[in-house]
């Protein structure tokens, strides 16, 4: 279980990857990673959930909080790679209508990516 980050080449966008269960054991690490990036003025974020197998309300809360801060900084927070179970959880609380969600993380990483809400 881990959280990692990388700056996408030729872009101001940072990608944050999550592997494992987004529960109480991993949510603090994701929150810390997102907060560090936001506090350093990085408001264009992509969270790759391809290897995330689970998310609870704490994980959603963490992502919503970062989405709000990115938006307040005139940026975006895009999600990609959600499996069917994660998609169901997002839909159950209407967050599929809030976040920009892309199936394909390769597309989300692309240089032509635009903020879905801009």
């Amino acid at each position: 279980m881990s959280v990692w980050q990388e700056k996408l080449p030729h872009s101001e966008t940072w990608l944050i990857g999550v592997s494992g269960r987004l529960d109480q054991s991993l949510n603090p690490k994701l929150e810390e990673t997102l907060n560090d990036l936001l506090e350093n003025g990085h408001y264009s974020l992509v969270v790759d959930l391809t290897h995330a197998t689970y998310i609870n309300s704490g994980g959603l809360r963490c992502l919503v909080s970062a989405w709000r801060r990115a938006k307040a900084g005139q940026g975006t927070l895009t999600l990609c790679g959600l499996n069917a179970r994660l998609q169901e959880i997002f839909a159950m609380v209407g967050f599929d209508k809030v976040f920009a969600i892309q199936d394909d993380c390769a597309a989300a990483r692309g240089p032509a990516r635009r903020g879905a809400h801009s």
Binding site: R61, G94, V98, H117
Partner: peptide, 25 residues
């Protein structure tokens, strides 16, 4: 209920109450 089509996005963040999400599940 959250609907991106029915309300401006600027209001959306204010409407999202996240405390009761676990119970909602």
């Amino acid at each position: 209920a959250i609907s991106r089509e029915s309300i401006p996005l600027d209001e959306l963040a204010n409407q999202m109450r996240i405390g009761g999400l676990g119970l909602h599940f």
